[in-house]
Write a protein that binds this DNA or RNA. Structure first.
Ligand SMILES: [Zn+2]
Ligand SMILES: [Zn+2]
Ligand SMILES: [Zn+2]
Ligand SMILES: [Zn+2]
Lengths: 146, 146
DNA sequence: CTTGAAGCTATAGTTGCTAGAGACATTAGG
DNA sequence: CCTAATGTCTCTAGCAACTATAGCTTCAAG
């Protein structure tokens, strides 16, 4: 049995984050020692590692909640899990597209600046006027159907 | 003089957002009509367009605050503004790198799944065990959706 | 036995908005 | 001119996903 600190170190998750996950029901309530401290076994360790890895891959806590409850029913079809992963891939691809456009505009800005005064700085100029941009980088309203 | 609604439409910013910007001091307190409604002139319109564009390029409100106060002193050197833009470019590049790795892992996951049961699903398997990943996509920093 | 690290609960703060309630102002139609 | 429909006002609370603080208690090492 691990204390919360050891568990956190083992999984690469900060202690308050573990307590937060318990609070929102992503982790079950931990067993307690005689002195009321949380104790974790192997199962909790695996569950936390799963959460951590999914967070690292950009899944939201809501998606992780669904993935966890799916993984608790191993004999069912994995279609729902795959759909969540595909939605996450689509989300990542759309962010990637947007960031690529942003990078291009920011590069244009900083390259054009010759280091003069603010009045002539292309950085300030471009920020004041989107029509000076080469691409349409504006924030799209993203929606994810369920 | 524009009312807050017209200004919002003109700049592509929602009304509560404009009030929020005023509240945090990013926009100056607006003039008021006889009936206590906010009224905006050309200068406010430009300032809001600047903010909107910088937000679209991913700058934080803190960075925008600095950029705005720099642009109010046109005869000074633009070095500070350029530094902010360069930092933003670096931030975007680092997010881009991370998202590229994420995309690769997510693609591997969804491609490998043949559509069986959860017990054999590569999606769940990979999420349970980072050593099945091809890249080291982990990064304790900066998972901020833009 | 004492000290310092680690744990506990509870609350509030972060970023950049967005949503609601309930009241007042303005505008268009009849 | 009256009314109904918007628009605007202030204020408060909520969203994700934590992080930080305060003021305790418990545990492990020396
Ligand atoms: Zn410059
Ligand atoms: Zn632009
Ligand atoms: Zn599958
Ligand atoms: Zn991995």
């Amino acid at each position: 049995m691990l204390t919360i600190g050891k568990l956190g170190k083992a999984a690469g998750v900060k202690v308050p984050t573990i307590r937060y996950y318990e609070q929102i029901g992503l982790l079950p309530e931990a067993e307690r020692s005689a002195g009321n401290q949380r104790l974790y076994g192997h199962k909790a360790q695996e569950r936390l590692a799963f959460i951590r890895h999914a967070r690292d891959l950009g899944f939201t806590l809501e998606a992780i909640r669904d993935l966890l409850s799916l993984s608790d029913r191993p004999d069912q079809s994995c279609a729902a899990a795959d759909a969540i992963a595909k939605a996450q891939l689509a989300e990542v691809e759309s962010r990637l597209a947007r960031l690529t456009a942003l990078k291009a505009e920011l590069e244009r800005m900083v390259v054009q600046c010759a280091g003069g005064s603010i009045a002539d700085c292309p950085v300030i100029e471009v920020l004041s006027d989107h029509s000076l941009c080469a691409t349409d980088h504006r924030h799209p309203e993203s929606e994810v159907p369920s």
